[in-house]
Design a protein around this nucleic acid. Sequence first.
DNA 1: CTGTTAGCGCGTTCAC
DNA 2: GTGAACGCGCTAACAG
Lengths: 330, 330
Amino acid sequence: MTSALESVCREAGCSAATVSRVLNDSPLVKESTRERVLAAVTKYDYRPAPAGRWLRVQRTETIGILSPNVGSGFFTDVLLGADAVAMEHQYHLMTAFSHGPEDHQKLFSRIIHQRRVDALVVLDLDLHSHLLADSSRWDMPVVSVCRPAVERGIPSVSIDNHAGGYSVMQHLLEHGYRDIALFTGPDNNYDSRHRLEGCLAAARNAGADLAEDRIHAGWFTMKSGKNLMQQMLDSGRKLPEAILALNDAMAMGAMGVLREQGLSVPGDLAIAGFDDNEAADSLGLTTIQVSHNRMGEEAVRLALAALANEEVPQHIVVPTRLVVRRSCGC
Amino acid sequence: MTSALESVCREAGCSAATVSRVLNDSPLVKESTRERVLAAVTKYDYRPAPAGRWLRVQRTETIGILSPNVGSGFFTDVLLGADAVAMEHQYHLMTAFSHGPEDHQKLFSRIIHQRRVDALVVLDLDLHSHLLADSSRWDMPVVSVCRPAVERGIPSVSIDNHAGGYSVMQHLLEHGYRDIALFTGPDNNYDSRHRLEGCLAAARNAGADLAEDRIHAGWFTMKSGKNLMQQMLDSGRKLPEAILALNDAMAMGAMGVLREQGLSVPGDLAIAGFDDNEAADSLGLTTIQVSHNRMGEEAVRLALAALANEEVPQHIVVPTRLVVRRSCGC
DNA sequence: CTGTTAGCGCGTTCAC
DNA sequence: GTGAACGCGCTAACAG
């Protein structure tokens, strides 16, 4: 059988090794030879099969991206940033989604243990699970996004949840609101906890006390925002002056219920969120903006640096920014 | 060097060939041997390196997914459906994004010509570009999502834009609205054209004529929805009774402007969209729902079928559904 | 500078 | 049923 490579060798009058050198930009090739080879490569439209290279160099030059969180624009934004950086470095991304915590194990073994990729970026997975137990045996760089896991020796990229919580709370306080209700995420949720701490710190600094029974835990979903709002209305208790939802999805859910009840935002009640998701602008929602794009970029940079055996910072914090719209009363 | 495979062979007292047979579920292995091998595999945690397999079988068992459209939940939904089906069949997805039309060429050559994947699902790319010229030479199954390319011999998955346009328009007409403005996408946009045709058909059937100067072309972005709405207000012309935006993003933009101007929806003006995106529910937007998930699933099914040399349908149309909320006046 | 050789780790004959 | 031998396509090491 006459492969394309053989044809190229014949045409260029050289061996396969030289063709390989030319295609890999080796400096050890005479200019005239290089030109002959490139001409032959073009003529026969020769493209090296990557599997051969993979086998030889023991690398796939592919980065996997694993995520449970695909319902919102968040994932998509991170992915786009990650893709851009991977692209620059001739790397590819492979995506995989866990369809629930039970799936993690299966995914990890398929992706990590099969060594189908060189490094792994993990989005928002609970790395404190048993999977982490043998992280040292993975023998593969893993970067965590949104779940700092420094104590495990896993570099991570996260956002400044504390500062974000602080500044949005501070803004509401500056409006003069004192009776502020908080819709948090699950108690054990990393983002929720840190955002909450930021809020409480801001309240403390302003000499405002947040009543414990004004803190309501939800699930960071639109539906749970709806539920919390509905419960608050049903309780018959006086409404707070403002609601601070620790993510936009819950804020959106709450706004939906208020709209249905004929209550106006911010007329009857101010609202603020956290995330600055796609809908925030059209809803006029005051919120905290995070560059998800940037998170993806930093994550891939960390992964690539680790692959190159460079020193990598253990933890990159991407800054947040308050975006003031009308829902807070501005 | 003592590889994990050698250890397994020694432990199980057999050759590498038998280990391979066991791991590939070959029926030609005695049960007792199989058990010994599996035990050894577990003991040494042996996992075949895929690169060797890829090289041997000339397949990567990976499906690439290529998309320019990552700003909304749409992409994410399709990806999730695609992932689920790929997963079932032990396939992986590799993602790549074109950052503008100039990029397509580069991406195609990296992904298709390098044969890094076995098949390619292309989202929403303009396949009528010059890239299609040599589609027959790709020698790789390509499935198009959102851009039927039957005439090119490329199977595709798309939504029933015509029926969707028809039913949402019909609904507005049933409300009694006659002066209806349309916000369309770019004139050359496939979805926009077909949705528009559906709308016009519905109007025709109802004996309602749509004035040409009530049809405004935008860019399917929130911003362009804002602009069109603002222009309409600035023109001083009497507002229409309803606005039908041919995607939700533009409807959201329009609603944002109306809110700023103190106009109420549907009080002063009814609005409907198309897509049923994430924010549609909280905005109370009447719209057309499409199962993006399903599109991803069908696309991967088509790709896998083509890889198995099965007969594949040339065109799968995913149905749409009218979702009635409050913005239309219901 | 270039060619020859060898081997990456599998799956697959073809003997036995 | 099983093992030995081969080769997938490429690149690193060494020789010249």
